[in-house]
């Protein structure tokens, strides 16, 4: 029972950390149909910005200051999203997908270079705020509070995005543009502005994810690629562009990865890829298909 509980707990931790990174990625794909390779790079910049805020404020911070640091990262990266939309994404809307891939990959390399120039090559790291740097025991199970916090953050971000897309006026407009941008323009909607808002929101989510996941993670210019493969796996399996799909896919893949490691420890790190391949063979359109875009 202890082992099952710990395995589920660790699977959920993997799932929610990955979902936090994947949320912005799937949002931007759902609306702009751009597979943003640079997402990992902006996640990394968010982590570094948050690190800088934490160090500037003295290192071991109370929870509320840590959250402010993560939000600052979200705002900074959101503003970078605004610049990227103006300079890059607008030029990619009417060109072949291959150009988008090349352009966003170039942006990823640029992010690595910027990080190297500003923060250097050394590995950096900070621990979670003291209140999140403890363990809760449930019988024989030991659950780090920071991991519980990340699971809660993943759920909160998912619920917030679902409510925003489904209930808010802006969310409804985003869905309209995602479904048929041409018709939305004919109806008088400012599609360009909605695109811009979506990009800023997507980038802000990447920055926020970087800020939240930064403790318990080594910071280096390699960080941009570390969650990217997992996040792509999650949005592909979830159904490209579906937030709900990404959330469910993250849980499915997280649990498979976790139980895979538990039962077959001699083959670490392959269960996520194996599960992705098998599930896509059975259901190539992903868990939610395309009908749930954004």
């Amino acid at each position: 029972m202890y082992d099952v509980g710990m395995t589920v707990f660790n699977g959920l931790a993997w799932a929610m950390a990955t979902f936090l990174v994947a949320a912005g990625l799937t949002l931007i794909f759902g609306i702009l149909h751009i597979l943003n390779f640079a997402h990992g790079g902006f996640f990394m910049i968010g982590a570094y910005v948050s690190y800088t805020v934490m160090i500037a404020l003295g290192g071991a911070l109370p929870l509320w200051l840590y959250l402010i640091g993560a939000m600052v990262a979200g705002v900074v990266v959101g503003l970078l999203g605004w610049a990227v939309d103006m300079l890059v994404f607008r030029r990619l809307r009417d060109v072949d997908d291959a150009y988008s891939l090349i352009a966003t990959y170039a942006l990823l390399l640029l992010c690595g270079g910027v990080v190297q120039l500003i923060w250097g090559l050394n590995y950096l790291g900070v621990m979670p705020p003291p209140v999140l740097n403890s363990v809760i025991f449930l019988g024989d199970m030991f659950m780090p509070t920071y991991t519980i916090f990340i699971i809660l953050c993943g759920v909160l971000v998912y619920v917030g995005l679902e409510l925003f897309i489904a209930k808010s006026q802006t969310g409804r407009l985003i869905r309209v543009v995602a479904a048929d941008p041409w018709m939305a323009q004919l109806l008088g909607l400012n599609v360009k502005r909605i695109y811009l808002f979506t990009v800023i929101l997507s980038f802000a989510l990447a920055g926020l994810a970087g800020g939240l996941l930064m403790p318990n993670q080594s910071l280096s210019p390699e960080l941009g690629g570390i969650f990217l493969l997992q996040a792509f796996g999650v949005i592909i399996l979830g159904g490209m562009g579906s937030i709900r799909g990404a959330f469910l896919a993250a849980i499915v893949l997280g649990l498979i990865e976790s139980f895979g490691v538990y039962f077959f420890p001699q083959y670490p790190g392959i269960f996520f890829l194996l599960a992705l391949a098998i599930i896509l063979l059975i259901k190539p359109e992903g868990i939610m298909g395309r009908e749930q875009t954004a």
């Binding site: 950390a17 490691v261 420890p265």
Partner: peptide
Amino acid sequence: AEPILVPYGSGDYRNYIAQAMR
């Protein structure tokens, strides 16, 4: 004991740490 093998370049080692705790 049998060694715990961990993948290269992972962002999450909690499953392996749980194994080590056992």
